[in-house]
Computed example of a mutant assay.
Amino acid sequence: MTPTPHIVVLGAGYTGLTAAKLLARRAPVTLVNDRDRFVERMRNHQLAAGQPVRGTPLRDLVAGTGIRLVVDRVTRIDPDRREVELASGAEPIGYDLLVYALGSTADLDAVPGAAEHAVAVADAERAVQLQDRMRAASTVAVVGGGLTGIEVATELAESHPDRTVRLVSAGRLGPALSERGQEHLYRTFDRFGIRLHEHAPVAKVGPDGLLLEQGERVDADVVVWTTGFRVPPLAREAGLAVGDNGRILVDGTMRSVSHPEVYAIGDAGAARDAEGREMRMGCGPGGLAGACAVRAITDRLAGRTPRQLAVAYDGQCISLGRKDGLFQYARGGSPVGPMLTGRVAAAVKEAVVRGAGGFSLRHPTVALLAGGRALA
């Protein structure tokens, strides 16, 4: 039996908080997060549209678990000393095992002017900023034709039917969906009156809208940036092996390929599916990776050989306002199997969000059992 280690978990999002609560049953855990509340990131598009979204105090969620909660921002990881340094200047926190779950943020540096003039919804604070700006806006342009952009555009259009909503995409809308799924999106956009600009990469963002690479201008009072995400630079700066996108390179048990005392889960870890492809950033893949890491740590501490992550399918679960949705499985980036739309899909998405942001956080064994199906 391996001696009980001190485990430090960085980040208290869906994946980090669940992992911390599960690991605390086996070893002392310190959880470090830069805010004192858990934020349901999957509801940020609702928050941006002016809908009430709960924020639960982290101390309530870790009460009775034995977890030591530190509300502070990590500024540096020292893998040689096995310590993390904090913005407050408090004593560095030492670790035997580190679970890196710091997530991702919007990449506002990809196009000139985006950082100065666009608003993102990757965090709650910016989503609230968008909510405030929508009060005085008559036209909003959402940049990005992926899942986040689709959800933001439809939520804003439904909540603000008197505003003009545009969606600008560098490619086709919902590229990972089947032809039938894309057709449902087009019908939904028509129903909401959303003006769609496909195959229209953005060259520059200004105070009054967008300049496209083809030279066309798209006027907007507010620009919402939903395309491209980046991870914090801490892992790269610490000397951990990372990919070109900054995600920590991990093996099939979510353990760093360069530092075996570090596990990376959620958006910050470059988990791979059963066919070796890097999995997308998102709550679903992140949750599977988190369950894999928890089981691997537990197995290794018990002297067992851990199982590997073996994800075959990825579920695309999209809300299209409050009364419509789309759910479809994909394998290897290609859609497979049946598709759900309408109120049924909306109910599925709401159940997923409620489960991830409520029941699973208070009863994390459920997430562990569900994630176990993705192991081999």
Rank of each mutant, 00 (worst) to 15 (best):
G243F: 00
E216C: 03
M281S: 04
A241M: 02
C292P: 07
E278I: 10
A238T: 12
D299G: 06
H184R: 03
D267I: 09
V250P: 06
R280D: 03
D251E: 04
A235L: 01
N245A: 09
V224I: 08
H259S: 04
G287F: 00
E237N: 08
R304Y: 06
A220T: 11
G206R: 14
T298Q: 08
A238F: 08
E278F: 00
T226D: 08
E278Y: 00
R247K: 09
V262M: 08
L288E: 11
G303W: 09
Q214H: 09
D244Q: 02
D208K: 08
G193S: 12
D190S: 15
G266N: 14
L185E: 02
A302D: 15
D221T: 04
V223A: 10
E261Q: 13
D299V: 02
A274V: 11
L210F: 14
V223P: 11
A241F: 00
D221S: 05
Y186Q: 05
P207D: 15
A293R: 08
M281I: 13
V231Y: 12
E275F: 08
I297W: 06
T188F: 02
R187K: 12
G206T: 15
F192I: 11
I194G: 07
H199M: 08
R295D: 10
D208T: 15
A293V: 05
V242Q: 03
P201L: 05
K204P: 01
L301I: 03
V231N: 10
K204S: 11
V224W: 05
A200I: 07
R280I: 06
R280C: 00
R295S: 12
F229H: 05
G193T: 12
G290E: 05
R300P: 02
C283A: 15
V222M: 01
R236D: 11
R191D: 14
D221Y: 03
G252I: 00
D190T: 14
R230N: 08
P232N: 10
A235P: 11
G290M: 02
R230A: 13
Y186T: 09
A235Q: 06
I265M: 12
W225Q: 04
Y263E: 12
L185F: 03
A238S: 06
T253Q: 07
D208M: 01
G276I: 14
